[in-house]
Write a protein that binds this DNA or RNA. Structure first.
Lengths: 199, 199
DNA sequence: CGCTAATCTAGAACAAGTTACAGACTTGAT
DNA sequence: ATCAAGTCTGTAACTTGTTCTAGATTAGCG
């Protein structure tokens, strides 16, 4: 019920690392079909070839599991983005371009997006550290796109608002309440804040 | 599993209206204690003096119930805001002031806020109409604060981003990942977008 | 190798959201 | 006032996330 103290996790053995991978893989695969609801802990455990208790030892809840899945996907995305950086003239264009590229990646797996986004926003305090990690990685991606050495406090505020918009627009998109054009407009609108802070 | 077609709901008898009120009241009271988890359907039914099946006839899921609870609270808020409109000079100041007032109202009942915000963002497609209603009311509150007759498309975009920021910052606040000062800063930053669209 | 602690497995058990159903009660129209 | 249709009640069952337990396996160490 309350958050656990997380002592710096001991290094995993090879077989444990493999188990962890299998679990995350199974999670992503099931999510890729029916979304959040299709990720059922018993099925994940079976697909990963581990006992239910073991699954819970690795990921203390379904939300933890899905947030970890998201961390994983974000890593892939960040790597892909580094390979081909955005080409826009201004910082705000580059950020918007980057986020739209991320969005198109999500569009390719809408069910997976559903599972990850719902888990991320439903997460309670016990998952805060993991959600923070996701947030930091997102921030890093945006700052990368801006291409700044030392962002000013005003710029960091703008980035925060852009991130809020990003998360919330994803929610409305996965729940079918926003069209793809709407997503694009909202992201671009939020990105204008960057121009406001660097004239 | 899939969304139902909702035929324009027939008018409720007096006793039915009373039942509905009792249910919403019980929901808000339980939420006011332990938040989302404390709103347990069996307990709501018992506290409202209706059978479990009846509760589900009025609100087809826990999420529907909590979103309806939010609609209810928003109405109260909107009424209170109309009585004492925001006093700021510029539109963006007035919007920021209004949202901060709403935020202070939520702070007074943090558990209730938790329940409503979590439900709102976890809602899937089957709850879209109800969530849309909440969104429209929020938009109305913001437009009221701006005090405009005919908002331009650009201004409507800005309002959308402000709303995204509002929802997302609430999520981070209820999950303990953002301080109250952070909330204030983020709201004010988003509101700057309004100035950008009306020079 | 042989021991000990940690980990893993299989499966039962529990909790809360949701559904199903039989019988009692209301409502509205005649 | 009576009847049919719709609603409500009480209760059990079902589903899926989560916890627990007893015994098998594994890892690390002397």
């Amino acid at each position: 019920m309350t958050a656990e103290v997380r002592p710096a996790s001991p290094p995993l053995t090879e077989r444990q690392e493999a188990r962890r991978r299998r679990i995350l893989h199974a999670s992503a695969r099931l999510a890729g079909r029916g979304g959040f609801d299709a990720v059922q802990m018993r099925e994940v455990a079976e697909a990963a070839g581990v006992a239910l208790g073991t699954l819970y030892r690795y990921f203390p809840s379904k939300i933890h599991l899905l947030v970890a899945t998201m961390q994983d996907q974000l890593d892939h995305l960040h790597a892909a983005l580094r390979k081909r950086p955005p080409a826009g003239e201004t910082a705000s264009e580059r950020v918007a371009e980057t986020l739209m590229r991320a969005f198109r990646a999500l569009q390719r797996e809408p069910h997976l997006a559903d599972a990850m986004v719902r888990a991320l926003t439903f997460a309670d305090r016990s998952v805060s550290p993991e959600v923070e990690t996701v947030s930091r990685r997102t921030t890093a991606i945006i700052l990368d796109a801006m291409g700044l050495e030392q962002p000013t406090p005003a710029q960091l505020s703008a980035v925060r608002v852009i991130e809020h918009t990003w998360h919330s627009v994803l929610i409305t998109w996965v729940s079918g309440r926003a069209s793809i054009t709407q997503v694009k407009t909202d992201i671009e609108t939020a990105c204008r804040l960057i121009d406001l802070t660097a004239p």
